[in-house]
Simulated assay, not measured.
Amino acid sequence: MIGNLPKPLKIAEAGVGGAEIFKLVTTESINLNYIETKPVTIYSITAIGTTDNLIYLKLYNKASNLNPSLDSPLLLIPIPGNTKGAGVTISFPAGADFSEGLCCLVVNGIDDVDETIVGAGSAVINITYK
């Protein structure tokens, strides 16, 4: 054998050290989701856009009572538009901490307080966290 080949990927079972997975296929809304209502650490985000428009994933350090017209997201991630699928994958090897909880929106506008709805199926988002 030449070189070092990577070992096959093994996903741990929940409860024995593995990350939780949040999956979202957007609906015609702002896609408000309270992913966790307790402190969490994010390890990866994959977001794929399926329309011609650039849309935005907003992640908040909130466990409840999000007010999109007042609260500022902790992370703002542009999701590229492409009808054949285009996107972004972000890895946080040491984790990104959300001390209160994890909440997300998916909207058309970049402003922190934008609440412009996206269309159904505009994006597919996967977040791994623990």
Rank of each mutant, 00 (worst) to 15 (best):
N67F: 00
T128F: 01
I21H: 08
K130G: 13
I45V: 15
I30H: 00
E20I: 09
I110W: 05
T50N: 10
N108T: 09
G17N: 01
C103Q: 07
E20P: 03
A12T: 08
I79T: 00
G85T: 14
I77S: 03
I117D: 15
I2P: 03
T83W: 02
P80V: 01
L5V: 12
N82F: 04
C103F: 01
G3W: 07
S72D: 14
V40Y: 08
A47G: 12
T27S: 05
V40E: 12
L32N: 12
D111N: 15
Y56F: 14
A120Q: 15
D112G: 06
A47S: 08
D52C: 12
E20Q: 15
I35C: 03
V107Y: 11
E100A: 09
I110H: 13
L24A: 03
S122K: 00
F98A: 07
E13V: 12
I77R: 03
K84E: 11
D52A: 15
G101N: 01
V16A: 10
I127T: 00
L57R: 11
G87T: 15
I79Y: 06
L75N: 01
A19F: 06
Y43W: 06
N65W: 04
F92I: 08
I110D: 12
K38E: 11
G109S: 05
P73T: 02
V107C: 09
T26A: 07
A86C: 06
G3Q: 07
A120F: 04
N67V: 14
L57P: 09
A12H: 01
I55V: 14
Y60A: 02
S64N: 08
K58H: 07
I2D: 07
A120C: 09
P93G: 04
D111Q: 04
D97W: 06
N53V: 14
L9R: 15
L9A: 15
P68S: 11
G101D: 07
L76F: 03
I79P: 06
G81S: 12
G87A: 13
N65R: 02
L75K: 05
T27I: 13
A63Q: 09
L24M: 10
M1W: 07
L59A: 13
P8Q: 09
T51N: 07
Y60R: 04
I30D: 07
Y34W: 05
